[in-house]
Design a protein around this nucleic acid. Sequence first.
DNA 1: CATTGTGAACTCATTCACAGCG
DNA 2: CGCTGTGAATGAGTTCACAATG
Lengths: 224, 224
Amino acid sequence: MKGYAAVGGTLMEKATNIPKATITRLSLYYRQLELMEFDGYRTVSSDKLAWLCQVNPAQVRKDLGYFGEFGVRGVGYDVKELQEQIKKILAINREWNLGVVGIGKLGSALLQHRNLQSRGFKCVAAFDNDPEKIGQIGPGGIEIRDINELDKAVRELNIEIGVITTPPSAAQYVADLFVEADVNAILNFSPIRIQVPDCCMVENIDFTVKLDILTYKLRNELGG
Amino acid sequence: MKGYAAVGGTLMEKATNIPKATITRLSLYYRQLELMEFDGYRTVSSDKLAWLCQVNPAQVRKDLGYFGEFGVRGVGYDVKELQEQIKKILAINREWNLGVVGIGKLGSALLQHRNLQSRGFKCVAAFDNDPEKIGQIGPGGIEIRDINELDKAVRELNIEIGVITTPPSAAQYVADLFVEADVNAILNFSPIRIQVPDCCMVENIDFTVKLDILTYKLRNELGG
DNA sequence: CATTGTGAACTCATTCACAGCG
DNA sequence: CGCTGTGAATGAGTTCACAATG
């Protein structure tokens, strides 16, 4: 091991410019490893993991190589051990508190979403601006709060990741509230790009874009 | 104009290897243009559009340049005209029929989702395997069908895009059904990667991955 | 003369190919 | 012997810089 990028939580040298796609794939590898462990596998080769995740085997090794040497030559990677390492790398080896703004159909779905809870992403607060909804107990048993109390709730409940599931017209306003409350990570489900300062990170989940990609391809790749 | 890639629906030369990211951005530009038209703008420069979409101005021009010459030097792009062109490029100048499988919270949310309907993505069928749900009128007024009738429904209703909102364990099975029924485009909301033949295109919407990216960054970019 | 359109330069990411090693 | 780890080669995508032009 060569004094690499972040893993331990202890030593923490600046990661040598790791492609964002690498992080995405690590998340994928992790999920695949979970399934493999469930199926009883003890070790896995980069070839096999690559095939399962539909990437190039060298890519798997390079991705992991950014963070350390986790494999055994001639054998492969220990399924359980590699999971632990990736958890550390991605910082999903602990719980994270989410605050969801916009309790419509989508927001409600998220509040109850199994895959979130089971992975340690806890929805600890729900917000809306609709007086009809405020004060009600929303899905998942969480009280729906007034959006104006966001700042207070962030501090009280230690909300670390903001989730925006409002209509697009409200998205920027909500983003500003999160930034103001020092929430540095936002998951944005609205189909517009919000503007935030550099200290705040945004990931967009935009199914309109994905559908547009599909229609483009349907039209071009096949002779639609 | 230099005999470029796909636009008209008439002439249709093979697009000269257009980056996928370009398609994603076109979808973004389009949405931004809608907002601008609503706000009364008649023209827009690549600089302004770039700023709004948080990309480089040259990127905007290059992206559009793959498909033709839509601007006027010294002036910019006509907001309305450029929308029309992008609609043609992305093939969103007509309606598309979707079939949604897995009518849980998320599937239900999609069936009623405004941004889908208003953009011409019509959910024409809903499927589930739960006998309790089958036959019920689901959200959006659509009858929930037995998953085993998928093939029949695809043909009867001309479903062109399949949407998977099942638990991960069912995702591959549903994907196989879609492929079998000659559906060539799938929007996959489950957090695993499904395997399909080359003729079928898949776009994944995976918020676990996005959350993992955020936690990774929180941990590394700031001194978490 | 402001702004587009685009070859060329550059930066970033992926894949190859093989040395290193259990 | 098989599989990892990694520098080097390749490839893709972005940005620069400026000529072209309404």
